[in-house]
């Protein structure tokens, strides 16, 4: 098990998944988001990957019922796309699209949701035939530009603003990071000095041994 201090530090930094760019509640008609890009960053796929790593957790945290799927191919010249699927029927009042389905790991997706990445069935399920409502080309774009494009397509989505406490926490965290960076330099200097002295001593001792 990871040391509790390291774990607690990670959990303190959970703030990043709650607030920041990408923390938005999508409009109710969005049924699924999928991305498609290369496994490597060459050929303009860097922004897409960064968007996945940084923004998608925030989107998923705020929209836990929206399936998000990523498929990655191996050719740098291949497409880099962001698909948004919508459905015309609005969701159930609590925002969930499939409250009637107790579990999806035993059965395939329901009629109103496109079958997504259910366990063990990602590649065996019948591929989703529905056309995405919007497809955004995200090649050669920064991750922030991708987010802007997404927001432009879905203007009804509601951006979650951090509360004053969270803002304060974010400021504290930034301060802490800055300080730790400075401390790291200091500690490194000290360590290097110690190592250098030890090395010198070792050399000196080696010389005396050779002389004797």
């Amino acid at each position: 098990m990871v040391n509790i201090i390291a774990r607690a530090r990670k959990l303190q930094e959970l703030l990043w998944i709650r607030c920041g760019p990408g923390a938005l509640v999508l409009p109710k008609e969005v049924s699924k988001i999928s991305m498609e890009f290369n496994t490597k960053i060459y050929g303009g796929h860097r922004g897409a990957r960064k968007f996945w790593r940084e923004m998608l957790p925030r989107i998923k945290y705020r929209n836990p019922s929206v399936p998000i799927e990523i498929s990655r191919h191996t050719s740098p010249d291949g497409p880099a796309l962001l698909h948004i699927y919508t459905k015309t029927t609005p969701n159930t009042p609590d925002g969930s699209s499939n409250t009637s389905v107790p579990s999806l790991h035993t059965q395939s997706g329901t009629a109103d949701t496109p079958p997504s990445s259910t366990p063990n069935a990602r590649n065996t399920l019948v591929p989703d035939a529905t056309k995405p409502t919007y497809s955004i080309n995200i090649r050669d774009q920064q991750h922030s530009e991708i987010l802007d494009a997404l927001l432009a397509k879905l203007p009804e989505s509601e951006v979650v603003r951090p509360t004053p406490e969270e803002e304060q926490q974010m400021v504290d965290m930034a301060e802490f990071k800055e300080r730790s960076e400075a401390d790291r330099v200091l500690v490194r200097e000290k360590l290097m000095k110690e190592r250098r002295e030890a090395e010198l001593l070792r050399l000196a001792r080696g010389e005396t041994a050779a002389a004797a």
Binding site: G95, S96, V101, L104, G109
Partner: peptide, 8 residues
């Protein structure tokens, strides 16, 4: 909890 039942 119903929000977490859907596919990932």
């Amino acid at each position: 909890p119903a929000l977490l039942t859907g596919p990932l």
